[in-house]
């Protein structure tokens, strides 16, 4: 996973969550299906894609999928 486009593709394909471009920066509360189980699915998919373990405690501070991408990319 190198770009935000890869990340959006991963969210759509691995999570089965329809995601419009504008929703990447939307507050997580604005995403109709989003919840803690989707976070687990996203973390699992990201860890598989990057081969690295992610700090869930820090991801909880993220307010949008874009911020989660930024944190995952920096880890």
């Amino acid at each position: 996973m190198h770009t935000i486009d890869d990340f959006v593709r991963l969210v759509r394909d691995e999570l089965g969550m329809p995601l419009e471009e504008y929703q990447v920066s939307a507050d997580l509360d604005q995403l109709p299906a989003w919840d803690s189980l989707y976070l687990l699915k996203l973390v699992t998919a990201l860890e598989q894609a990057t081969g690295r373990s992610l700090p869930v405690g820090r991801l909880l501070e993220a307010r949008s999928l874009g911020e989660i991408y930024q944190l995952a990319a920096r880890t």
Binding site: S36, L40, V56
Partner: peptide
């Protein structure tokens, strides 16, 4: 299971 340990702790 191949899932994140910290997530289980937190949620």
């Amino acid at each position: 299971l191949g899932v994140n340990e910290e997530w289980i702790d937190v949620f």
